[in-house]
Amino acid sequence: MSRPGLPAARVLGLAAAALVLLLAALVFGAAVGETRIPFDTVAKAVANRLWAGGHALDPIDEGIVWNYRLSRAVVASACGAALAVSGAVLQSLLRNPLADPYLLGISAGASSGAVAVAILGLGGGLLSLPLGALTGALLAFGLVSGLAVLAGRGLAAIILAGVAGSQLFNALTAFVVTKSATADQARGIMFWLLGNLSGVRWPDAGLAVPVALVGLAVCLVHARTLDAFAFGTASAAALGIPVRRVRAVLIGATALMTAVMVSIVGSIGFVGLVIPHAARLVVGVRHGALLPASALIGALFMIAADVLSRTLLPGQVLPIGVMTALVGAPAFALILIHRPVVGGMGAR
């Protein structure tokens, strides 16, 4: 297990290795699909677009790599990293191993927002589906945090408020879908609820990547602070942590990150719950290592899940949420079995 301060050289080395892994995964994501494109062609296509490499390529291959698969892999990695980091932060902050980024009503709110735009036609065409989802997510989060503040300061209040908020917005979504949606609309919404990377293009990456990077940076700045929550909020306060301020900043940051990701790709489950646990098994509980590791594993996992969802059934794309849950649920079961049995799950 690592000491609190690793030598700078080792940190740089690890960061470089992580970056290489991530780039390799992106290239892999761009190469694999219904038509397999050689890695060499992927590299040339990227070179053409980034610094006018001038390689002669089949324009269809180049188009698939650049416009379709690479943008998709980049967004997948940003979402995976953001969701995994959000999950890790919330699990530590709320002292609950079952906490995930959707705990605070964000995915429920996003689907209500999306449904309101897509089916009820709210916003009269001015609101796009992602913008509607983002609005819904933030609205739900605002409501849930308001309820948590009213209900008291305890951790249980936050979790229970999240449950209440999620149920409410899920019911609203179900109500609208049952009452007003055509069969086609219902199918579209269902696809979106399970996560969908099909429509993703470069402008989405232009939003997802900066949001993930800024969110990760905000959380990393608080790495040592999160460590201090190991023995509960009273203990953190005794160690000099301004608990309420830190909680507000970090919950706000993870909520924003999650809301943006959900608005782009829908609510992809299990990544934010399982990846942090997997990362803990690999690098331990210290957040200085746990958060970057969660981000990296989340990004790699999501790229792999996307590739699987495109290639598992020939001629058909599965919702990515189906893949993450199919892999995530058994993985989570394994982690649960191997978890040390201790008290303090979400207590205090």
Partner: peptide
Amino acid sequence: EQQAETGERLTARQAVELGRTPHL
């Protein structure tokens, strides 16, 4: 405190290292 517990997989040393938090 009385009976502060954790569910994290901390080592004994890491639990003590937290004491340096306000100085770092």
